[in-house]
Amino acid sequence: MEDESPKKRNIRPTEKSNLPIITLFVLVLLVLAMLYVGYEYVSDDSTNSEELTSTVKDTTEDKTVTEEPVAEEPESEDPVIKAKPKATEEKDKEKTKEKEKKEEPKKTEDAKVVASRIGGREIIRTVKGGETFSSVASRYNLTTETLKALNPSITELKSGDKLKIRVKAVHTVGPGDILKVVSGKYDVSKEAIMKANGKTKDLASRGEELVIPFPTKR
């Protein structure tokens, strides 16, 4: 009896530890965390790849859209359309050149024709300031059109220009030649002679040259 009692006293009670359960729980959490991180990484890669494919598709679609109207346009029509106006322009230039060549000799012929048709004598008169075609023409009993036809090279009168004028005659005043006698000799009114020579009085000096205009407008 004495031997059994001390044996029972020396036996210690067994203690239960929670360490294995905690470590297992921590490992499970780590595994879950790694799985979650890996899933996010994979999902990010898939979205990036989808964006890349979408951008590539967009560029190809843009290219096809821009290239479609170019392919539809006929290539053979462009040079034909461009060539037509060039040909017409060249023809127009040739026509204008031919017209200019034809018109140049006509102007000189018209002046000669007008001079021969009017007859009389040609005089050269220096234009004074303020004079116009109509004022000069009325002074010598000519129409404005006739005076312009006699001077085709002059478009606007300027002081100092030389005008060709056709008159009936040029009379040199002799002894006893008064304006009334001169007007009766050429069958032109005295007023017309005075106007053509810029006279305000019925006077003429001996040796003076009087311009005799036409009796009617030409």
Rank of each mutant, 00 (worst) to 15 (best):
T146R: 00
D3Q: 08
L150K: 00
D78L: 09
D58Q: 14
L210R: 02
K128Q: 12
K112E: 10
G130H: 06
K57N: 14
S5W: 15
D202Q: 12
E89S: 13
I11C: 07
T47R: 11
E2H: 09
E68I: 06
R9Q: 06
S17C: 07
G120W: 08
P152I: 05
S46E: 14
L150Q: 00
E98A: 10
T47E: 13
T23H: 07
L157K: 01
V181H: 07
K162G: 01
E100L: 15
R9N: 05
I178Q: 14
D187S: 13
S54G: 06
V114Q: 04
K99N: 14
D58W: 06
E191V: 05
K97G: 05
T144I: 09
S183T: 10
K180H: 07
L142C: 03
P85E: 06
Y186C: 08
P20S: 04
P79H: 04
R218K: 15
P105H: 04
R125Y: 09
L210G: 03
T200P: 00
E40I: 04
V28C: 11
L24F: 07
E94G: 01
S76Y: 07
K199I: 06
P74Q: 09
V114S: 02
E209L: 13
R117F: 14
I21Q: 09
V167P: 00
N18H: 14
L210D: 07
D44C: 03
A149V: 01
R166V: 01
N18V: 13
S5C: 02
V70S: 11
G120E: 09
K99S: 15
K16C: 05
S153H: 04
A83P: 02
N48V: 11
P105S: 06
F214V: 01
E73S: 09
K128W: 02
Y39V: 05
T108N: 09
T144K: 08
V211Q: 01
E98L: 11
E145G: 12
L179R: 01
A87Q: 12
P175Q: 13
L203H: 03
D110M: 13
V170T: 15
K106S: 12
S189Y: 05
P85H: 08
K164L: 13
E145L: 04
L210E: 05
R139Y: 08
V181E: 11
T55G: 02
V182M: 02
K164S: 15
D161E: 08
P20Q: 03
E40P: 00
L179S: 02
T88F: 12
A149W: 00
E208W: 04
I81T: 13
